[in-house]
Design a protein around this nucleic acid. Sequence first.
DNA 1: CTAGGGTTAG
Length: 544
Amino acid sequence: MKPSRLNQHSFLFLLREASASSTPHRRLPPLHALLVKLGLQPYTRVYNGLIWVYSATGLVADARRVFDGMSHRDTVSFNSMIHGHAMSGDVGSALQLFERVPAPSPVTWTSMVAGLCRAWDVASARRLFEEMPVRDLISWNAMISGLVGNRQPVEALCLFRRMMAEGFVPNRGTVLTALSACAGAGALETGKWIHAFVEKKRLFRWWDEFLGTALLDMYAKCGAVELALDVFTKLRSRNTCTWNAMINGLAMNGYSTKALDMFRQMELDGTVEPDEVTFVGVLLACSHGGFVDVGREHFYMIEKKYDIGLILEHYACMVDLLARSGHLQEAHKIITGMPMKPDAVIWRALLGGCRLHKDVKMAETAISEIEATCSGDHVLLSNLYAAVGRWSGVEDVRSTMRSKGIEKIPGCSSIEINGSIHEFISGDKSHPSYNEIHVKLAEIGSKMQLQGYVTETAEVFYDVEEEEKEQALGHHSEKLAIAFGLIGGPPNVAIRIVKNLRFCADCHKFAKLVSQIYHREIVVRDRARFHHFREGTCSCNDFW
DNA sequence: CTAGGGTTAG
């Protein structure tokens, strides 16, 4: 090779090729050595490229050596190095460099914002984002997706709205992130608005697999199954993810049989292969539908017929299905026979079944296996003790919770009205419509009494203090949200609520009665699944 | 022919 023919441009080409190869770790150092030998050091661009490819292939220490050895560093050198540090999880080093950049550009700021979001420091990311002198579309996308990734979809949507108000035109990335935020927040109105906006502005040629899957997933996660199906049927092409999203969406929404039909259709269609995620959806459908035999069959087919390895989630669904339908011993056998270590989710599924079928002994086994316990597990055990009348057990759980300092996660429900999301926390008085809500709840209460409604006390029994607090302050968050939906939402439109915890029996009964008395459809997404209430009945058939 | 975001399903 004639060195004279190798200039900075061709060298950058070689770097890119080496980094895309299967063995970048072996191919980059010789190129680096050649670069030094050829005397291309003065070319900052080439060295920037080297920093970039070293970082991108995980060789951050090498990247840093190059960076430190450079005689002339420009903004791109800093940006590449900041990005490298941030991607390797070393935000500290990234921040140190960020302080030293002579002329930071929007790229510099955005790299730092994204890096902080990746390191779960969304608060610092947000501060930096607000401080940025110039924000472009990618800066907005980075911050919005950072919020979604840090489980703050409501905040993400607020930012999305601000971005639109400032006149930015969303691109593919923005739309994907914003739809995912709507899915997370259960913001159907906003999701529909984005859908319509994309169509009206003809933002994309068509809804491809990625966009289409994100769209249908949004509808499914907002409880709008018909709309999700509509998107699904109209898509030009579907990949495995698309089918999985549809199957899972049906399962989550309680359309168990339809979900299984959809899986059969997927097989008949034959253009895509099911994968392990497909079977998570299939088993979820069986679990929510209480189809024990069908579930067992599919569980064994995963490996035998489809040659797909069983993953933790498959076991979790299977344990959930068996435990919930009362096959506690079989569920326990599945757990002890698992090739991997059962996690808290698995034991929790067994615990839930024990609570339902009042098996104290098995419940105690389950709870002793859950290490980093959260309040919900203790509450479940306590409820079980209360249900079988073992009050000493209830007291034991309370003292365990006190001594371990386990705090209860406050219940939080949200409802979207006119595109803005209102959040209610159990017993919270801070909402501006607090007084109206309580007037409404009193009205509901008296109407319910006429129908012979009695509070379900079993599930609130475990904690007398909490019970008193609830009497004094109000209600579980979903009741506040439902009352607010009756007041503020347009009539004849379903009241849609997203809750962070699972339904308690009392609130479930409450929702059923409200749907009957006011002839309003109520859709609640709780931690585990959807509940569609219509004229006094729930799609879960009181099986959850 | 340099650098930042996003890539959907569990």
